[in-house]
Every structure is written in structure tokens, then in C-alpha cells.
């Protein structure tokens, strides 16, 4: 199959990025600590793209995204901890199961709550997030392996940069293909006007649920990778504040822009760490103030988000460019 120019540029850009990282690793500029930050950024990219599908493209407000990130992390982490023994195949299987479980849970709770609109949906998903957090804190009463409120460790640390990078690339491409298809257009039409979409023949319930399940499955996948990169899982890593992080990334990046989500996700994770270094140990508590200020200022200056529905060309697949007017080259009238 012939690749379009934009897709080639996408791969070229990715290769350059990869080469830069490798050079920095080789020179020792990229210390293991910053490597960990970079890996975390890529993991957050995957999870944030999930929320981008749900909120940015389909317009369904969710405040419980971190719950699905946590479900994926605990499912994949616990499976691999108990059965894995460092087997790569089982590692991938556990990632897949983590994503599937997150997607399945999203489907079950999505059926009743996706009837709600905007703020009500936000409250329902927020409530679900709290339930999941409580579940994680008390999970050890049912399955001791989950560790409960003291956290879980012991998952084989099989995810490293190369693998996370490739997974992130695959996910970006798949999300792009989804958005630029009839399914993506159906989701966007729901965001733009749900009643009009319904009257124009689009099964809105079905596509709201599809978007929610896909988005949450991506969060679950991101969580599964996280569990294999960070040796210690704790319920506090998956609470409301984490959901809020995902939401910030999607809103700050600009609703309906994958470019915005990806860049803001990476920028956000690095910003938090850079602030930690810049402020030093004595002023670390000011971090919350500074990033809240950055948030307030950027929402005042650019309320539509950094990219507001626009994409870098390399994230737009080959479009069927129809020249308008007389010089059209396509023939016939279809069926």
C-alpha cells in the first residue's frame, strides 16, 4: 500500500525523535531519571489520546479517566506479577487484558451513564472514579496480591523506552485513522449537535459508547504499560487528581486536536518535573501554585486551547483532495 506524504513525514519525524533520544542516551545527557520522565510522558500521551476521543472528539465530559488508567495498571500488573515470570509474550498479553478489562468496565458503566449530558456525566464519572479508588484501597481483602492501601509492587519491569515509543506510535496512528474515518465523523457530529446527528441517521448512543469504550481501553493500555515501568503502584496515583491531569491536557491542548493532546501531554509531564528541579526541595510546595497559574493564564489567553481543533499536517492522513470548481479530475457519479 502506498503511504501518503503526510504519513511518511510522520514516520520521518518519529525516526528523528527516536535518534535524538538515542544520541542523548549515548552522551549521558538523558539520565535514567529523565528517561523515566520521558517514558511517563509517552504513557500519558496514550492515556490522554483516549480522553481526547471521549471528550475532545465526541464531546462526552469524563472526570473518571484515571480510574480506567488504574484498572488497566492493576489488572495488567497483577496478572504479570502472578503468572508472568518475565515472559515477553505474557507481558503483551497482560497489556491487552488490562486494556480489555478497562474497556469492558467502560461499556458496563457507559450504558447507563452516557444518557446523561455534560455536567451530569462529569459527576457520574467522578463518582465512578471514587468507587474505583475505594476498590483499589480495599482490593487486598479479596485478592491479597493487589496490596490495597499500602500499594502493590513486584510487577516485572519489562517496559522500556523503545517499546513504549513504538506502542505510542502505533496508538497515535490508529487514533488518527479512527478520527479520519466515518466513525470519527459520526463521533464529531455528536459533539457538534447530538439531536441533529440523531435525526440525520447516526445511532448516537452506539457511538457515544464506542468512543467511551475505546478511550477507556486506551487509558487501560497506558495503565498496563505504567505498571511495567514503575515498580510501585498505589491507589493515590489513580485518583481524581490524576483524572484532572488528563482533562487538563485535553482541554489545554485544544478540544478536537490530537496534535494538541500529544504535545500538551508531553509538555505537562516535563513541566511538572522541571518545576521540581527549578524550585528545589525548599520550594517544592509552590509547584501546585505555579502550575495552577500557568493553567489560569493559558485559559485566559487561549480559551480554545493551544491547537483548537487544528492538526499538524503529519497527523492528517492522505485526504481525498477534491479540487473545487471546474478542474475536478474525478469522473462518474458513484452508484
Amino acid at each position: 500500500m502506498k503511504l501518503s506524504r503526510n504519513t511518511l513525514f510522520f514516520f520521518l519525524g518519529s525516526a528523528i525523535f527516536y535518534a535524538l533520544v538515542k544520541i542523548m542516551q549515548f552522551n549521558g545527557i538523558l539520565t535514567p531519571y529523565w528517561q523515566l520522565v520521558l517514558d511517563q510522558a509517552l504513557i500519558i500521551v496514550i492515556g490522554a489520546l483516549g480522553l481526547s476521543i471521549i471528550y475532545g472528539f465526541t464531546g462526552q465530559f469524563s472526570l473518571g479517566h484515571a480510574a480506567f488508567y488504574g484498572i488497566g495498571a492493576y489488572t495488567a500488573g497483577a496478572l504479570d506479577k502472578v503468572y508472568g515470570n518475565g515472559n515477553m509474550l505474557f507481558f503483551f498479553l497482560s497489556l491487552l487484558i488490562g486494556a480489555l478489562v478497562a474497556g469492558l468496565v467502560a461499556f458496563i458503566i457507559g450504558l447507563p451513564i452516557l444518557r446523561l449530558r455534560s455536567d451530569y456525566l462529569g459527576i457520574a464519572t467522578l463518582g465512578f472514579g471514587i468507587i474505583v479508588r475505594v476498590g483499589m484501597e480495599n482490593g487486598n481483602k479479596l485478592f491479597p496480591v493487589l496490596g490495597g492501601a499500602t500499594g502493590m509492587s513486584g510487577t516485572p519491569q519489562l517496559a522500556q523506552f523503545d517499546l513504549i515509543f513504538i506502542l505510542a506510535l502505533i496508538i497515535i496512528l490508529l487514533v488518527r485513522n479512527f478520527i479520519f474515518s466515518t466513525y470519527g465523523r459520526a463521533c464529531i457530529s455528536i459533539r457538534e449537535d447530538e439531536i441533529a446527528a440523531d435525526v440525520m441517521g447516526i445511532d448516537t448512543t452506539r457511538y457515544k459508547i464506542l468512543a467511551f469504550v475505546l478511550g477507556c481501553a486506551l487509558a487501560g493500555l497506558a495503565g498496563g504499560i505504567y505498571a511495567h515501568r514503575y515498580p510501585f503502584l498505589h491507589p493515590a496515583s489513580f485518583d481524581f487528581l490524576k483524572s484532572f491531569d488528563f482533562l487538563l491536557i485535553v482541554v489545554l491542548g485544544g478540544l478536537g486536536s490530537m496534535t494538541g493532546t500529544i504535545i500538551t501531554a508531553i509538555g505537562w509531564v516535563f513541566l511538572l518535573e522541571v518545576l521540581r528541579v527549578v524550585l528545589g526541595q525548599d520550594f517544592i510546595d509552590w509547584r501546585g501554585v505555579i502550575y495552577a497559574l500557568i493553567l489560569v493564564v493559558s485559559i485566559i489567553v487561549r480559551p480554545q486551547g493551544l491547537f483548537s481543533g487544528k492538526e499538524f499536517r503529519l497527523l492528517v492522513p492522505e485526504q481525498l483532495k477534491m479540487a473545487t470548481g471546474k478542474e475536478r479530475t474525478y469522473a462518474g457519479s458513484g452508484n
Binding site: S189, R191, E192, D193, A196
Partner: peptide, 8 residues
């Protein structure tokens, strides 16, 4: 009251 998909 026209209901287009305005952002598209």
C-alpha cells in the same frame, strides 16, 4: 433554527 455541525 439551523442545526449544522458548525465546527466541521
Amino acid at each position: 433554527n439551523i442545526r449544522l455541525f458548525k465546527g466541521n
